[in-house]
Computed example of a mutant assay.
Amino acid sequence: MQSTDALQKMDGPMLFGRVIDGKGGARAIDWADAQSWLPAVPGELMWLHLCRTQPGVYEWLQDALSIPEPTAEMLTMDSTRPRAFKEDDTLVATLRGINFNPGAEPEDMVSMQFWCDGQRLITLRRQPLQTPRDVLAMLDSGKGPVDAGALITMHVELMVARMNAAIVDMNDHIDAMEEMGIEENRNSILERTTIIRRNCLALKRHMGPQHAALETIARADLDWFEAHDRREIGETVERLKRYLDDIDVSMESALVLQDEIRARAVAGAERTNYLLTLVAAIFLPLGFLTGLLGINVGGMPGMNDPGAFWIVVGLCIAILAVQIFLFWRWHLFTRH
């Protein structure tokens, strides 16, 4: 397999190009030869992988391939939801794959556009995506797709399969957090579950439309897109459904963890407030008594009696004992 650096040495807007021989292999083609390419033998297919941000790509799509202006705009746009449609005898699609580039988050999905008429497949991207490189490695080893339908199907299968890796990783994180001590790692778990829920929402936002786009591809009535290709896309659609269900489970699991942490925090706060209320209820009459006896006005009883202090202390102890007895009878100490 070629290195990433090698693939970045572009020939014009082309990252790489191959002419597929219909037997699982392919030969390289440069940008100049691609302009005038025609099949030399039946079954040949030209695949060009382009960087859509390079100058002239939009114009080339219109001039060289006679692609209508709205379709050419869709193929070179950055903010495009996954979608697919048939246009005459061509298939046009925008799909998204997991971004595994350094520093990227799973929800930062990379879009990739497809245009195919059965003899030419044009794929376009802005950021590096691993799926085309994997398919390229298969072709260069002689074990790749043999026609346009198989080439598109292989891209779709690998793109969806890579989503599973991100979903499994999130599920593993949730399982690990469920085994952690919640009290000791409360803040860490809350932060990580929030990130997981955000990732799940982002993945679902893209994978929902992608599911509809793949269903459109599976129903495409094109001469060069054969029945077995549609069946394989249908299997990929079912796999994507399971992944969407897994995302829902991950979101619910993260929500359950967050609810449990919040419930424990609320219970702890309520227990603390209850104890503070009991303490306040105990010392309220004692504070009232001592405050009443502490006013500095004439006529206070016991001012000239040396034993008056101990009488007050004994009275406070008696009041405290009565309060504790009553709280015990009312089961206030065992309520929490």
Rank of each mutant, 00 (worst) to 15 (best):
Y58D: 02
R120S: 13
V160T: 07
P106M: 06
P70A: 08
I319M: 15
M163K: 02
E215W: 05
P209K: 04
L48F: 04
I196T: 04
N99Y: 02
L95C: 06
A165P: 01
W310H: 13
M207I: 14
V249P: 02
D147L: 09
A176I: 11
A40V: 09
G17F: 14
A220W: 02
Q130F: 04
R219L: 15
E183S: 14
V312C: 07
L129N: 03
D259G: 14
A281C: 10
M77T: 13
G298L: 03
G56L: 12
D223C: 06
L275C: 14
L95E: 01
I189P: 00
A227W: 07
D89R: 09
Q258T: 13
F85Y: 14
A150H: 03
E73W: 03
R120I: 14
Y58L: 12
T272N: 14
L292C: 15
G302E: 00
D245G: 04
G56W: 07
A148S: 15
G118W: 12
H155C: 08
F225N: 03
E69Y: 08
V312W: 00
P132H: 14
L244S: 03
D21S: 09
A26E: 10
S36G: 14
F16D: 06
R83N: 07
G56C: 07
W31P: 00
P301H: 07
D229P: 05
W310P: 03
V237T: 10
L65F: 12
A161S: 10
V135P: 01
A28K: 10
L136D: 01
M109F: 02
G12D: 04
M300F: 14
D108V: 04
L289Q: 01
R231K: 08
G287E: 07
V313S: 09
T123I: 08
T90V: 02
V322D: 05
D11H: 09
P55R: 01
L121N: 09
T194V: 03
E87A: 09
V297F: 15
V160M: 04
T193D: 08
W224F: 14
R133T: 04
P106N: 00
L293D: 01
L278P: 02
Q130V: 13
L332Y: 11
N185V: 11
T193Q: 05
T236Q: 09
P70S: 05
E105S: 06
R125A: 09
L75V: 03
T272C: 07
A6L: 15
E191G: 05
D134W: 00
E184P: 06
P301F: 11
R192G: 01
A32N: 09
R264M: 15
R133M: 11
G97Y: 08
A308F: 02
T76N: 06
I196R: 01
A161G: 09
F327W: 11
E44D: 08
T236R: 08
N187E: 12
D88Q: 13
M300Y: 13
E179I: 03
C51P: 07
D21H: 13
R329Q: 13
A6D: 14
P42R: 12
P106I: 00
S66D: 07
V19T: 02
M251Q: 08
Q113E: 06
V156L: 12
I295P: 13
D88W: 06
I319G: 02
T90N: 08
I247Y: 04
V92R: 04
N101P: 10
N304M: 12
F16H: 15
M46W: 05
T4P: 08
K143N: 13
H173Y: 05
V279R: 13
T131I: 11
